[in-house]
Amino acid sequence: MSAVRCVDLCKTYRQGDQDIKALDHVSIEIDKGGFVCLSAPSGGGKTTLLNAIGGLDIPDSGEVYVDGQRIDNLSKGDLADLRLRQIGFVFQAYNLIPVLTAQENVEFVMQVQGVATSERNEKAKEILKEVGLEGLENRRPAEMSGGQQQRVAVARAVASRPALILADEPTANLDSKTSDGLMELFTELNENHSSTFIIASHDQRVMNYAKRLVRMLDGRIVEDIDQRAA
């Protein structure tokens, strides 16, 4: 069964007097355990597609399936539940909660899920160690570098072992060395935890790490390459 299936998605935004087609009849299927990079220039539709897959945005038409479940017709509350239990997000700007420590940020989603204190404590420490942040558990975001913050964001996204991880421009604010480190971490997590990764990025390094590269332009998929075969 596919992890994600999108059928004929359309989404149009209004900008001033103009209608912008962010998604123009997009159909895509991503297998479980996949490591996909959605690549497009700015305004190409990659973030809109990512948001539609993550249930953050509802397409004007078409269907979105996550793990076989149709999600484009779910209520706000059901979509929130879906994101909480099945999807991990990594954002461009890290988006950590500034008043919580690294460990508390990682624990936050698990607490909302209702995971017991001792279990989430242990899991958070374990995952922070896995992303190389052992010893920094009690630091707040403002006391960490951009790379460290992004690692906390990744730890938060994968801590509850979601089946699907969506990352929007995760390396945009990182230097090349940190970007490589992050992509290696993604690859490792993809292989070790069998999570499906969909990364929206126009960073060439990210494209190089992806097993599958989907190029978009003006809201349409223009190229779909299996890089393992290349």
């Binding site: 993550g54 706000k76 929130a80 994101r83 954002f91 989603v109 909302v112 938060r156």
Partner: peptide
């Protein structure tokens, strides 16, 4: 952000 993470 927290809504995106799944908080209602």
């Amino acid at each position: 952000i927290v809504m995106a993470l799944g908080l209602k």
